[in-house]
Design a protein around this nucleic acid. Structure first.
Length: 351
DNA sequence: AATTCGGGGCT
DNA sequence: AGCCCAGAATT
């Protein structure tokens, strides 16, 4: 009997949310936000450059990871002009360890375009922002709302979960089709003024209250209008899409040595970690085994055996190959496995 | 519509 | 070992 009542109640609530809409949600949410918001280094300013850099860094990257990078990056590149004037390799160096290095290259390219085409002024509309490399619908909405107070909606990991629970959306999320209903909810709820605060409030709610596991509904300012809460389906929403299983891979890295120097190569276009340095890979390599490095890239699990050999001579350096001292590796932007191989090197030489 | 990009932290 | 994360671009 409870089933039917629940289903009817669910339908009623699903229709109620868009109708109740803005004030009933924004008011308690913003009151909560004023009291509980996170203290984050990129807040407290509407400087579009800082908002932009933070949003790019935050793509698929947890807030706590970005904290340290953000301040250092801004010391190196305080304005969009500094970033535009920098060399790509120096930008990649300051990005090393954050992952998704395409973001850094596109950030750099976009900075140059903002300086060249927009005279250093950021575009203010979602459409213009999306025309810049590395800026999709989410990032454009975030910059437009936070830096320029435009009524632009956003959907990302937190708001996706918050909105799905709020309206009781129980279909698999992700992708253009899966997220489309969530974007509709976001569009309906974003206020015409103070959209930036609203968007950040939704994200903070998702990060602190409406968490993936064991959300703190007892402390949620929206609990009384939340369909998932009312129908006891908080644990079932959002519905997770099935995940791909990972593939195993094997490779051999070679440490070529000559007179205190080692050989490194720069990853080219189409390769993982484009623009970053690493030790050469050679499946047929022979030589003394130094150890192994295991790492994961998205859904690939790679076991990398590390061998060392001595070279008869040092080939001339190019922009793709270079002989450097072990100490000199510190000045290069390196891949994560490359950095770990370098650590292996120091370890073995100190023994 | 499906894949491909990193990497660390947490359970 | 699996899951998660202030997504975007490419095919």
């Amino acid at each position: 009997m409870g089933r039917q009542v629940t289903a009817r109640k669910r339908r009623r609530l699903e229709q109620a949310v868009p109708a109740v809409a803005q004030p009933a949600i924004a008011r308690p949410l913003l009151r909560w936000y004023a009291r509980a918001k996170r203290d984050l280094p990129w807040r407290g300013t509407a400087d579009p450059y800082r908002v932009w850099v933070s949003e790019i860094m935050l793509q698929q990257t947890q807030v706590e990871r970005v904290r340290g990078y953000f301040a250092r990056f801004l010391e190196w590149f305080p304005t969009v002009h500094d970033l535009a004037a920098a060399r790509e390799h120096d930008v990649l160096r300051r990005w090393e360890g954050l992952g998704y290095y395409r973001r850094a290259r596109q950030l750099h390219a976009a900075a140059r375009r903002i300086v060249a085409d927009h005279d250093g002024e950021f575009p203010r509309t979602v459409a213009e922002l999306m025309a810049l490399p590395g800026i999709g619908r989410y990032t454009a909405g975030a910059i437009a709302s936070i830096a320029f107070d435009m009524p632009a909606p956003i959907v990302e990991a937190n708001s996706r979960r918050v909105f799905a629970r709020l309206v009781g959306h129980d279909r698999p999320l992700g992708g253009a089709a899966g997220d489309a209903p969530i974007w509709e909810v976001a569009e309906r709820l974003v206020p015409t003024r103070g959209a930036g605060r609203f968007n950040q409030a939704v994200m903070d709610l998702g990060a602190m209250i409406c968490t993936p596991d064991r959300p703190l509904c007892a402390r949620c300012p929206l609990a009384n209008v939340c369909v998932a809460h009312a129908t006891c389906r908080v644990d079932e929403i959002p519905v997770k899409a099935p995940r791909r299983r990972s593939r195993q891979m094997h490779e051999t890295a070679v440490v070529m040595r000559h007179g205190g120097h080692v050989l490194v190569e720069r990853r080219g276009p189409g390769q993982w970690w484009e623009g970053l340095w690493d030790f050469p890979r050679d499946a047929a390599a022979t030589g003394r085994k130094l150890g192994a490095v295991r790492y994961t890239v998205t859904h690939h699990q790679i076991e990398c055996v590390v061998r060392e050999r001595s070279a008869a001579r040092r080939s001339p350096s190019t922009d793709k190959r270079r002989w450097v001292t072990v100490a000199g590796l510190a000045t290069l932007a390196m891949t994560a496995p490359g950095r770990r191989i370098a650590a292996l090197l120091k370890q073995s030489s100190s023994i």
